[in-house]
Amino acid sequence: MTTSTVELVGKASALLQSSQAERALELLAPHASDKQDDVVYLQTFGEALLENNQVETAYQVLIRGCELDPEAEHGTEKFLYLGQIIGGVDGLNYIDAGLTRLESQLKCIEDDSITPDAALVELGKIYSTKNSIASYLIKKLNQGIFAKIEIWMTDLCMEPEAESQCDNLITSSLKWDPENPEAWSLLASIRISQQRSADAQEALVKAWSLFQIKKTTLEDAASKSQQPGHSDESGDFDVNMEYAELLQPLLTLAKLAIESELYEIAISASSGSQDINESLLESYYYEGLACLLQAKKLHVAANKSGEDYREIQLSSSTDEEAQSFLEDARIALTHGFKLCQGDASEMDEEVAAQVNELLNEVGGPLMSELLPKRGGAEEYEGWEEDIESDEE
């Protein structure tokens, strides 16, 4: 890898890690013709294309990289990405090629007598200790394992060995990292598909406990970075990235918790995701839905009606606890409603429709939540017209 490629890939990787995929692609694209045989460049270029939803072009770039580096000596990511794009049995084969190299690199870390490959040498320039390199490799291993599980649960779900493959893979993941909350969440997803409700709930409780620990640890680290005299900018960046990466896993946990009727976990996970990004409609939908379902469940239990609580309509309840959850649902859904008044091009139309449907069920948006804050009327002008048009 030439010096120019080192600099180019380094800058592009930093942009990708800071969610600036468009800028990374703008930086890399002009070099596509003169670096078509540069494996490391192709791997990063393929990632940038994927992040910009240019899947077909990314496929061509990544498959070229895999052909030039069939043993993944210069990085495994291209095999993991390509496997996810292709799916099916062929996708599994590409992912396995990456996993084989990752396991070899872990073995190399454990045994100093093994000569490290080029990718491991580069990792040694980034991470200062064996433990930190091993943690990085295990994280990559789990990403590959998760991708394989997804293929078995979708493309190959009708194969007779699909269930046993998923069980073996998630067991392997938890062996590598038993404290990984995403692995426990994925275990819950597998158990839900197997209709093992009690096991799914147990896994979700464990996942939420580990997510809480991880989130709190990262928040504490971020707080310390603000203290006078702190100067570890590289470490701060890693903490911020890891914190941002909790967003989607928390939303997935909330969705699975709703499916498993663990509504209070779903509410907490949704609320926790809003600490990371308060402008994501999905989080308010899950929170509102979980609050509403919990209210219905409590209402039916209090009235001993024997109805299926999920099938009833409920806008108020004489049960105080149920009424409290109803009010929380209305607040969450009103926040979602406010987001729906923003840029429609960035909204998931299906989620927006579900938010409005649930909001109508609980009595419509709360005016107190829609009123602009004192001194900030210009930030949300026309809110009255928005409400009227929605009602129409």
Rank of each mutant, 00 (worst) to 15 (best):
D199N: 13
I190L: 05
K215G: 03
V205F: 04
L186S: 09
I192K: 10
L204I: 14
L204G: 13
S185G: 09
A188G: 12
R191A: 05
I192Q: 13
A207R: 07
Q212K: 10
I213P: 00
S189E: 12
L187D: 00
S189G: 08
R191V: 07
T216V: 08
Q195E: 14
I192Y: 01
L204C: 12
Q195S: 14
K215T: 04
L218N: 02
L187W: 02
L218P: 04
L218Y: 02
S223K: 13
S209L: 06
S225F: 04
L218C: 04
W208M: 11
V205K: 07
K214W: 01
F211E: 00
S223N: 10
F211Q: 01
D220T: 09
T217P: 00
F211V: 06
L204T: 06
W208I: 15
T216H: 05
R196H: 09
L210H: 02
L210E: 03
D199V: 06
D220N: 13
S209G: 11
Q195F: 08
K215R: 06
S223M: 08
A207H: 08
I192E: 10
D199H: 12
L204R: 08
K224H: 03
A222C: 09
K224M: 07
Q226Y: 00
K214Y: 01
D220G: 09
S225Q: 09
Q226G: 15
L218K: 02
Q201N: 12
E202R: 11
L186K: 15
T217Y: 01
E202K: 14
T217W: 00
Q195L: 13
S225C: 12
S193R: 14
E202F: 10
Q195H: 10
A222H: 04
I190V: 14
L218Q: 02
K214M: 04
L210Y: 02
A203K: 08
Q212M: 09
S193A: 13
A221D: 02
Q194F: 03
L218H: 02
D220I: 02
A188Y: 13
K206E: 12
Q194N: 07
S223I: 08
L210A: 06
S225D: 11
I213V: 13
F211P: 01
Q201K: 15
A203S: 15
S193N: 14
A221N: 02
A222Y: 01
S197D: 10
R191S: 04
A203E: 05
L187C: 08
L204F: 09
S209M: 06
L218M: 05
L187Q: 12
R196E: 14
K224L: 11
D220A: 13
L204Y: 09
L187H: 03
A207K: 07
K214T: 14
V205Y: 03
S193L: 06
K214C: 04
L218S: 03
A200W: 02
I213S: 06
I190Y: 02
E202V: 10
K215Q: 07
